[in-house]
Simulated scan of single mutants.
Amino acid sequence: MDVREMVVLGTLAVAMFNVGVIWLTQRVVYPVWTLVGEREWGAYHDAHKRRLPGTVFVPHGLGIVGSALMVGWPPDRIPVWLVCLALALPLTMAAATAVYWAPQQTRLSTQLDRLLLQRLLATHWIRVALISAHGAVMWWIAAATFA
């Protein structure tokens, strides 16, 4: 196995981890937030934020790095447009998070706003789609790489 194939496998593994985390977040974590009382909200949200680096930020960063490595050093038999898509999806998600979802989370961290929480839950499906699409593209790349 050469280094490019190891990058494909590593990026696939991270992408699948990210897919699992985003679906768990969307279907379990965020809906439970609606059950947290206002008095407990600050402590609950702080505990959530403390767990994000290892479970969200680092894995997404690794997915971006792996995808960028594939653009610069594409695996054999993989079209350039496909590895570019593999990079564009997590970059789009990261940019949209920085511009849209992170500011909402920051507002929620100081005070429980049920209307804002509803908007977060509804629009978060876009992130679910982007992260899931990255996972699907990585499966496609891996399947073609090892065919």
Rank of each mutant, 00 (worst) to 15 (best):
D2T: 01
V3L: 15
V7F: 03
V8R: 10
V8A: 06
L9V: 13
G10E: 05
T11S: 13
F17L: 13
F17V: 08
N18I: 07
V19N: 09
V21S: 14
V21I: 15
W23V: 06
R27S: 08
V28N: 04
V28D: 15
V29L: 12
Y30E: 02
P31T: 04
V32I: 13
V32Q: 15
W33Q: 12
T34N: 15
E38P: 00
E38L: 02
W41D: 01
W41N: 10
G42E: 12
G42L: 10
G42W: 01
A43T: 10
Y44Q: 02
D46A: 14
R50S: 04
R50H: 10
L52R: 02
P53Q: 07
G54L: 11
G54N: 12
T55Y: 00
V56M: 10
F57Q: 09
F57N: 06
F57T: 15
P59W: 14
P59K: 10
P59N: 12
H60R: 14
L62S: 00
L62V: 01
G63P: 05
V65L: 13
S67T: 13
V71W: 01
V71L: 09
P75F: 02
R77P: 04
R77W: 00
I78T: 09
I78V: 15
P79W: 11
W81C: 06
L82T: 11
L82S: 12
V83A: 08
C84E: 15
A86R: 08
A88L: 13
A88S: 10
P90K: 06
P90C: 01
P90S: 03
L91R: 03
L91Q: 12
T92D: 14
M93A: 14
M93S: 11
M93Y: 02
A95P: 03
A95F: 13
V99E: 09
Y100H: 04
W101S: 03
W101A: 11
W101T: 08
Q104H: 06
Q105T: 10
T106E: 14
R107L: 14
R107H: 05
R107I: 01
L108C: 03
L108A: 03
S109Y: 10
T110F: 03
Q111Y: 06
L112M: 06
R114S: 10
L115Y: 04
L115I: 05
L116F: 02
L116I: 02
L116K: 06
L117Y: 08
Q118V: 15
R119G: 02
L120D: 13
L120F: 15
L120Y: 14
R127F: 03
R127W: 05
A129D: 01
A129H: 00
L130C: 11
A133V: 02
H134F: 09
H134A: 15
G135R: 04
G135A: 09
G135T: 14
V137Y: 00
W140I: 01
A142C: 07
A142N: 11
A142T: 05
A144Q: 15
F146I: 13
